[in-house]
Each structure stands twice: as structure tokens, then as C-alpha cells.
Design a protein around this nucleic acid. Structure first.
Lengths: 168, 168
DNA sequence: CACCCTGGGTCTGATTGACAGACCCAGTAG
DNA sequence: CTACTGGGTCTGTCAATCAGACCCAGGGTG
């Protein structure tokens, strides 16, 4: 289906299928509001308290409040109360759930693409490292037969198990 | 840095660094507006004409117009005029550039996460296949030493070459 | 030639989302 | 008791998105 070839004379196959249950659309309903990915970047980088996230990300306070609430509601983040060791009142931090940690490939892929195309001359300010060996970590495409898919042109979308014909 | 461990008593290291040149933020300035990823989904799936994209995605026409213009401006998509074979007026389609194709890991990662957490009982309506062998393709984390990183907890963010101290 | 149709937009008033700044309340410490 | 701080919430203003209508250019047809 997706090639960059001369297919403009045929109706694309994808048009015949419904997008109602599309996994990309469903994910973007959760992740796609302004600032959500940036909030996740902060938490993945260890910045977990409301005010720290707000100042480091530059997001407006009630946008941040809304985004955090939604991420908690979707079980991507959880609120963890704690007491600072030097004493003082109970505070709150936001931590990733297992579901939230599964967003690491999304964040890594966005970071890789951003670094490749928009990095400053010095390179990106953050890189991901493999704890085992210290080598940098990247997002990649791999197939279930174990092949590394280096060229995006080797990927073809096709109808999946939940594909439904559009009523038209 | 990012563990889910008991680090809440220390200031997170990431706070000391500026986010001004962050690759995630830079990418999200391009990709993060409402509907952009969904537009890219359409084009990756072979839906390339304005009206087809509009109807299939459900986006409002001037939001779509704006998003397409921005994607063209950022050299992610290009406009290609063509003539239908049965005759008729010149038409336009939107095609991915090489830079645009490099977003496949982003789209795949989003799709994987969406399918895992929000798929309908039948499963996702679209899957990606490896042209060489036909096996399904996924986004994965790999390190530069060649290891597959299966557990997100094995990933640690660290300051990269472009890391800059915050003035505070 | 005139007329019609279609494709890729653009426009408009109404609704919703984001902003800066101010404010609030609860939990501590002194 | 007062003061301070942390995690929010509120308010008026501005920006983004919506549905529906409209526009214009490039064709084909009679």
C-alpha cells in the first residue's frame, strides 16, 4: 500500500476502511493534547513535582494541572505522596506506571527524529543510555521474524485483525 | 536518572539543564498540533488527496489545510500535481519526503502503544508488515552496541552533547 | 463561446482551549 | 497564633477549532 510510487490513479485501499477503532487515533486522544508529551518527557527525566515540571517545561499551571490529571486518569502516571527527609509537610510526586513506561519507544522515536532534524550544533541535550552497557539507545523498527528494518520503505501497512469496512 | 526508585529526596539532575534546545520540544513544535499525527497516519496509509484525508480523518477543513501547509513548510510532505488517467483537471496529492518517512518509528511506536492499550476486541485495524518477509513490524528500543532493550527500566536518560546548564 | 462541475482551499460567527496573573486552602514549622 | 509553601483553581483575555457557507480556478461538455 504505502509506496511513494505512481499510485495516484487508484483509490487508496485505506479509504475503504473505518478509522473509528484506529489505534493511532485512540492513542492520540490520550497523548495528543498540547503539552502532554512534554510533561511525559519531564517525568521520564526524573522531574516529578508539580512546580518543578511547571517551571522546567514552561507550561501554564492549569494546563499542567489538567494534563497531569488526565495522565493519572488514564493510569499512565500515578500520584505518590511522600515526606521529605529533612522534615516538612507531605508532598506529591508523579510517577510512571508500567503502562506509562511503555511509552518510552514513543518518546525515544520523537527524540531521535527531533535530534536528527532540529538539534542545535552541539547536538541534543539529552540522550538515552543502555544501563547494561552504556551505549546510546534509539527507537528502531523490527519485525517479528527478528529482522531490523532499516529503510522505512520496507514497511507496508495492511488491514489488521480489527479492520472494518466503511459504510458508504 | 530515571528510575522509579526512592529518589524523591534529591533534586532531579534534569532540573539543572535547560530545555531550550530540547529535541523532544523541537519535534513537538512541528508534530504536536491537534491532528498532525492523524494526518501523517493517512498519508502513510496511502490517503493523499485533500478531500480524502479530510473525510477519512474527520478533521475540519481549515485545520487540515493549516496542518498540510505546515508539514509542507517543514519538508515532511510535498505537494505533487498530477493528472488522472481518465482525463480531467490537474489535481494535487501530498507525499512523504525522506524526512517524513523517518517518522515511521514515531507512528509505529504510537500505534503499538495504542493497540496494546486501546484496541477493540478484534485487535487493531491496521498493522505494519515487513515487505521482505511479511512479518509484522513494531517499534523497539535498541542500543548502539546492538542489544535489544526489552525493559524500559534498562534505559537511563543522561545529559547529551548539547546539554546546557540553566541560568538560575 | 457559455455553462457546469469539481477540487482545494478560505471565510465567518460560535464554541472551546490556553494564557498570565491573582487567588485559595491545607499542612507544616516556629 | 502567624507565616510559609505546595498544589492547585479562578478570571478575563486571547488563540485555536468547529460547522457551514462560500470562493475561484481548471477542466469538460454542448
Amino acid at each position: 500500500m504505502v509506496t511513494d510510487g505512481p499510485e495516484h490513479t487508484e483509490r487508496p485501499a485505506a479509504l475503504a476502511f473505518s478509522t473509528e477503532n484506529c489505534q493511532v487515533a485512540a492513542a492520540m486522544r490520550v497523548l495528543g493534547e498540547r503539552g502532554t508529551i512534554v510533561v511525559l518527557r519531564e517525568v521520564f527525566n526524573g522531574v516529578r513535582r508539580f512546580d518543578d515540571i511547571q517551571q522546567h517545561s514552561g507550561l501554564a499551571r492549569q494546563v499542567l494541572s489538567d494534563r497531569l490529571a488526565r495522565l493519572v486518569e488514564h493510569a499512565i502516571l500515578r500520584r505518590v505522596p511522600y515526606r521529605p527527609e529533612g522534615g516538612g509537610r507531605a508532598r506529591l510526586e508523579y510517577r510512571l506506571t508500567a503502562k506509562g513506561l511503555e511509552l518510552y519507544p514513543v518518546l525515544a522515536a520523537v527524540a531521535d527524529w527531533g535530534a536528527r532534524h532540529y538539534a542545535s550544533p552541539d547536538g541534543p541535550p539529552v540522550e538515552l543510555a543502555h544501563r547494561g552497557c552504556g551505549a546510546p539507545v534509539h527507537a528502531a523498527l523490527v519485525c517479528e521474524a527478528g529482522h531490523a528494518v532499516e529503510d522505512p520503505r520496507e514497511v507496508a501497512p495492511r488491514p489488521g485483525p480489527g479492520a472494518r469496512r466503511r459504510a458508504s
